[in-house]
């Protein structure tokens, strides 16, 4: 028991405040592995072919408006009508699309620090450096905003180990689609990096109507 409390205190110190604020994903297996849920006021990295699906899921869970920051891509863009079908609220989205990554990061520091959005989704072309990541973390640490960083790549041409590789994120996820139908989606969540515990894998099913998560199986067990 003392061990647990000490652990909590260390985490709190790391985040620069006395108590952790959490966003539980609503699935005990995952929440336990994260020691309660995703940390708010922290940066999480989501990668993989189904990164957008998972970020969309987290953003809906969190609520409270989204700032979506991206460098201009020549061809791909987010599709709000599709987001709306999965229960997100595109009317609360604010999209900031800048051609230059440096400008975008400057904006990101402002937005993360302002504590006005539920989630801030930052989409970058190249992996961020350790310094940039750390600066994002410092900007967000005293707020209850959830910072999400994804990398803009041509879907699926990388493996979980290649993606990301930035030290400062609290968690890093690699997400792929297992099965999909109009009613439900099965995704494989691979928690590649986890500051709160060890890496894990799950296959999770999401019901599109009720937005409930069910654990289907744990690969390798």
């Amino acid at each position: 028991m003392r061990h647990e409390t000490l652990k909590q205190q260390i985490i709190a110190l790391e985040l620069g405040r006395c108590e952790r604020q959490l966003l539980p994903l609503g699935l005990p297996a995952i929440d336990d592995a994260l020691q309660g849920g995703l940390d708010l006021g922290a940066i999480h990295e989501v990668t993989g072919p189904a990164a957008v699906f998972f970020t969309q899921l987290i953003m809906r869970q969190k609520g409270g408006g989204v700032f979506w920051l991206t460098t201009r891509s020549p061809n791909e863009e987010y599709y709000p009508p599709g987001m709306a079908q999965y229960g997100s609220r595109p009317e609360d989205f604010i999209a900031i699309c800048l051609p230059d990554t440096r400008d975008l990061l400057k904006v990101a520091y402002e937005v993360l620090g302002a504590n006005v959005a539920g989630c801030v989704l930052l989409e970058v072309q190249k992996p961020l450096t350790q310094t940039q990541m750390r600066k994002l973390q410092i900007a967000v640490q005293n707020t209850d905003t959830l910072g999400l960083v994804t990398r803009f790549t041509h879907v699926g041409m990388t493996s979980p180990e290649q993606e990301g590789a930035c030290g400062s994120a609290i968690t890093r996820w690699y997400v792929t689609i297992v099965d999909w139908s109009h009613e439900k989606t099965q995704i494989e969540l691979y928690l590649v990096k986890n500051r709160r515990g060890s890496p894990c894998r799950w296959i999770v099913e999401i019901d599109h109507a009720t937005h409930h998560l069910h654990l289907v199986s744990v690969p390798g067990e």
């Binding site: 699906f53 061809n75 791909e76 987010y78 599709y79 009508p81 599709g82 079908q85 009317e91």
Partner: peptide, 30 residues
Amino acid sequence: AFSREAALYASRSQRWISSSGKRPLRILKK
């Protein structure tokens, strides 16, 4: 099926009515 307006001038939009068929999360302009 959607449009974008400068946030400086536009206020929050109405609720979205979803179409019958499933739509993607990302669209390719071309």
